[in-house]
Design a protein around this nucleic acid. Structure first.
Lengths: 102, 102
DNA sequence: CATACACATAGAAAAATGTCAATATGTTTT
DNA sequence: AAAACATATTGACATTTTTCTATGTGTATG
């Protein structure tokens, strides 16, 4: 997959703000439109819109437009990529034995 | 485990900065002291010290003091907690069927 | 014991991020 | 077509984060 350092920061920025973490908790119950998300968060509409953009940019959330509504949900594929990325970046190389290989 | 939103942000802040991601890449080759990390990064010594504090606070990195040196390494336990946390927060509830349970 | 070394902390400046009010855009309804 | 609605964008401000220089702390060494 070979993500750049920058791309990795974009993925995990989604989880660096308490309100965005809370949005994940709400979306765990299923797809929801922005106006319903707004009801459960103490945020202005533009602020929520900003957070949803950060979440969609990370790939962990996807938006689906339906008329004037935007429906947001957690992306299973995005989540898998993030988990794989986290595992990769925290894995320690075993191939460092000096006698057999580089 | 039941981590708070705040605790989750602390974990993933470790991966929200490109320099810190790069530090993970370097530590993947094994434990390293701060002065050697410094050689591979274009950062001042206090800035590196700051990033190492963020990383240790997240639990993904651990420091081991030996004389005047601090040796840093990736924490396998911390990584496991982070992966579990990421899986949990991105999991979608299945128990939402209206006919059988709440 | 004085000096050098490795790292941490304090304080300040700069950059990035979070927030809101106001406004714009696009869609539906009347 | 006008009005109402849902969401996005803009611009301003406050907070947080990143970064540095200067300095402090603890440890080893000459």
């Amino acid at each position: 997959m070979e993500l750049s350092n920058k791309q990795i920061t974009v993925i995990f920025k989604s989880l660096c703000d308490e309100n965005r973490v809370q949005i994940f908790r709400i979306l765990q119950n299923g797809e929801l439109c922005a106006c319903h998300l707004l009801e459960e968060l103490h945020l202005s509409q533009p602020t929520l819109s900003h957070h949803m953009k950060v979440l969609c940019d990370s790939g962990l959330v996807v938006g689906r437009k339906e008329g004037k509504w935007m429906h947001y949900s957690i992306s299973a594929e995005g989540a898998k990529i993030a988990v794989d990325c986290l595992k990769e970046i925290t894995a320690v190389n075993e191939s460092e034995c000096k006698c057999c290989n580089k």
